[in-house]
Design a protein around this nucleic acid. Sequence first.
DNA 1: CGTGGATTTGAGAGAAATCAAATCATGTGG
DNA 2: CCACATGATTTGATTTCTCTCAAATCCACG
Lengths: 242, 242
Amino acid sequence: MAGSLSDALLRKITVSNKLDGKDVEAIRNLSIERRMTGPREIVVHDGERPTQCCLVVEGFMFRAKTTFDGQRQILSLHVPGEIPDLQSLHLRIMDHDLVTLTSCTLGFIPHEALKRLNSARPNVAAALWRETLIDAAIFREWIVNVGRRTGLARMAHLLSELRRRLEVIGRASDGAFRLPITQAELADCLAMSTVHVNRVLQELRREGLIEVERSAFHLLNQPKLEELGQFDPHYLHQTPVS
Amino acid sequence: MAGSLSDALLRKITVSNKLDGKDVEAIRNLSIERRMTGPREIVVHDGERPTQCCLVVEGFMFRAKTTFDGQRQILSLHVPGEIPDLQSLHLRIMDHDLVTLTSCTLGFIPHEALKRLNSARPNVAAALWRETLIDAAIFREWIVNVGRRTGLARMAHLLSELRRRLEVIGRASDGAFRLPITQAELADCLAMSTVHVNRVLQELRREGLIEVERSAFHLLNQPKLEELGQFDPHYLHQTPVS
DNA sequence: CGTGGATTTGAGAGAAATCAAATCATGTGG
DNA sequence: CCACATGATTTGATTTCTCTCAAATCCACG
């Protein structure tokens, strides 16, 4: 078939990990159940006990927590090839929601299958562990982003991060990428108000740093934008490791 | 000897994981090198490539990032029994500093030894993986804390979290625990100014929720404090798993 | 008993939130 | 094809929380 579900996973996982032929083979042999979703669907709920993991094949997802007083904080954005709830393999209860940002093609992999894969292929287990650690590294950077940067820098940082992450999986080039996200959702990522997001985006446009046309983002001056966002990509750990 | 270095690790790891006799045995057999440090020492630097992991045996550590303009954000606090840089086993380059908050007794475990342990004892590997996932869960909650809560709630949340984490390792009881931390350091945890930390602490005292006597914290009304901080402990995943 | 770090207090400034309304798209049904 | 509904973006005015700056006080320690 032209593009099995595991292709997205392989493309993404090999950005940060070296796999041998047998590892790849084992991943290809995973039985993955395809499911299509609309946008803004909660795929896994906070408090749930999943028995499978969710692979993003096409589209974008995010993870979010909602506070008691109804505010929402988006914790991470997820691009094709990622398994946002891989943690559920070892953490019984979900401590946040996993939600589709756009219409998605998802692949569901039973925990059992992943556990068999992990014990049969220690190298794959290490790679998956590594993916969850990179996840954590991004969380750390987001703490800094939300805690210590101005609205302008925060937005610049987020856009710079997304550009890098999309580029390595071939979904951004020349600073241009498609990401259907509303300003309210950006606000939930950056812990600011929608109004402020709007003004920050205007400022970035005025400075000639970005162009946004519906869901098409274009970073016109990546070095300037990365400088403004104090962006240093080494936390993304995008270098393959054995 | 009364209390080997691995005891702290075992006590902590069994809070969230079930280990069998052979697992415990294997952990006890780890060769761990003891080192004493003073307070505020950077043990592992951002950008470094560690070849060993650092176990907190006694004292407190924290992880932090420093932005280009010199601001510091503390990313996590670490209590005895934790291995704050366990991630370095799979992530070559440090993306933050690991620092002692107080004088510490540390135990250094070579990566090689940990890798042997992981392949010999898959159950221990899963437990360690799980520890890094709990780490990530705490990062997520900190994103929410810093991003979405007021100064007062932020402090209440942090204190509630620490109380829980210290209690399960027997270092807090009745809401009282020892934590030698300055208001400036609390500010770096909570992404606020020292002045504001001071005022928030005064407010909590005025409300009769806490008492602070040098490094002795006493949470006088834990339910109220947890409510104020919107604290829900399920993200700590303190229930043992196979 | 002096000294330096930590805490506390006061006053003013600023970044961003909130509130409210207008404008702009997009898609639908008559 | 246009009136209408809906959601997203934009704009303006006001408020609020928190920061910054500065100085005073407190406290442990040599």
